[in-house]
Amino acid sequence: MNSIFAKRRARLLAMKAIRDNQTIPGEKTVTCPHCQQVSDRKIVAQGLSVCPKCGYHFPIGAYYRLSTILDPGTFRELNEKYPAGDPLHFPDYRKKLESAQRKTCLTEAAVTATGTIGGVKCVVGVLDSRFLMGSMSAAVGEKITLAIEFAAKNKLPLILFAASGGARMQEGILSLMQMAKTSAALARFSEKGLLYISVLTDPTTGGVTASFASLGDIILAEPGALIGFAGPRVIQQTIGQTLPEGFQRAEFQMAHGFVDAVVPRVRMRETLSQLLRLHEKGGRQ
């Protein structure tokens, strides 16, 4: 019985992952925005959406991300139906949400789940940059917080993949408050002696950088990911000069002491698996 459900879950995630990965159906080739070279779509897909010519990491959807990380058949979504909200009744915001929902088949910019990686059970949360730039709405903050609380309650390690332009403007101050909420939940989680791995992907900026994304026991980043608090455009306006090459990229953040390791997508699963194993018996009883 169990294996039938496991197979179904594996298929379900695989289907959602495929849907994530085909934003332009029918196209046979893709052009890398970094090196401008054209590659066969199939080869790019086989390489986990990494440009085979220059190693550029294409943005990927949340379900696809989960399918590249979790052991097959172990995915179980948490709070799948948690609704998007419009707490300030902001003009035209509902329409924007609905259009993002249609485009991505997601209800909000965050997907949270349990599953195993290399056989170790954990909670994984993923922000999806295709949904209003992965910005932090009250619903995103709530889903992340519920995932942290679920991990704390069940004494599971936690992995969060950040990808966010920052705050959700249309939710104003309530978006800002999600920074305090998620950080406070992580403080409680940490007090239980549990492991939190934060993975920074392109882009991780604004309120997400200034809250849960920067609070990992271990912080990993995908190559070339833009990581910072203020966006490059704002900084450029402030200081009135052009920014140095590679500024705020993952490698820059590692050199400045804010990232433990830059991990290419193809090695992410084994790296996470190694870290989970290293922490397996570390938790306070």
């Binding site: 950080s183 992580l186 403080a187 940490s190 950088t209 920067s214 608090f229 704002v234 900084i235 402030t238």
Partner: peptide, 24 residues
């Protein structure tokens, strides 16, 4: 401050850490 040096020294991390610690 959205400046170059502030970013280099981890503006986001500094704010996040305050939120984390103040909460408890």
């Amino acid at each position: 401050y959205p400046g170059l040096e502030a970013e280099e020294r981890g503006q986001g991390e500094a704010i996040a850490r305050n939120l984390f610690e103040m909460s408890r």
